[in-house]
Simulated assay, not measured.
Amino acid sequence: MSTANSLPRSTRQSVYTALPAQAVFGPTPWLAFDPLDIDVRTRPSDDVPWQVPPVAWSADLSSPRAGFVTVAFAAGLAAGTRVLVQGRRVHGRITDVTRGGAIVTAALERELDMQAATLQELRRDTDIVGDAFGAFDAEVASAAASAATARAYATSPYEVPVAEGERSALHWSVVSHQFATEAEAWAASVGGIIHDFGLLSEDVTSEEDWGTL
């Protein structure tokens, strides 16, 4: 932390659940430095991905204390809507920290605060991507196992444990359909992983949840 701002360990994100027609959410327990550093996503329930909000929103950093984020939507949201407020700062140097050869402590502290906030957000998003790649690897391994089984069916039909007289074109059609269904499910799951790279893990439920896919 600095002399002006408290920056404890944080993932710099907060999740809220809307009351009927609720339009204002916050303030967050973490600081931001510019309204442009704020990103908001919503979803009607926890079993669907985060989405761009259906109505316009704005971020206020002045109430009740400078730096803490309050988000206001142009219209009230449906009851139960989940609201994700995230810090997503793109850092830049906007002022100098020395003047006339002397260090300006207030400017230096603010610069270090902004860097710390950016690093916290970077760590949060890096962990999410890492979890996504882990899930992707597991899906690839599952698909490879299914492919190996399908190949065994195709090349060694007499090893398939079916009763005498049941080997027929219909039986092999059912087997082929089974593995085609598994392949479709795998493709859909990979698509979900790629989609979440640009947003956030679907399992974020609290400000301190790093998220998993």
Rank of each mutant, 00 (worst) to 15 (best):
G100H: 06
A116W: 06
V104Y: 04
L119H: 01
R88S: 01
A106V: 15
D47H: 09
L84Q: 01
L31G: 11
L31A: 14
A107N: 15
A32R: 13
F68Q: 13
V85N: 01
A102D: 11
W57N: 04
L31E: 03
L112K: 10
F33H: 09
S58N: 05
E109T: 13
E109M: 06
D60V: 11
L84D: 02
V104K: 13
E109C: 01
V97D: 01
A116G: 01
R43G: 03
A72I: 06
R43A: 05
W57C: 10
A107I: 08
E111D: 12
E109R: 08
M114G: 08
A72E: 12
H91M: 09
I103T: 14
V24L: 07
A116I: 11
V24E: 07
A107L: 15
P27S: 12
H91T: 07
R43N: 06
A106C: 08
A75E: 15
R43D: 01
I38K: 11
R99V: 14
P53V: 02
F68N: 14
F33A: 14
W57H: 09
S58L: 09
P27D: 03
R89Y: 03
T105Q: 15
A23R: 13
D37F: 01
L77E: 01
L112W: 03
V71L: 05
G101N: 04
T98I: 11
L112E: 05
G101A: 08
W57P: 13
A75L: 08
T28S: 06
T42G: 04
V24Y: 05
G87H: 10
P49Y: 01
I103G: 10
F33Q: 09
V90R: 15
F73S: 05
I94T: 14
L122C: 00
Q51C: 00
W50G: 01
F25T: 10
T28L: 08
D34Y: 11
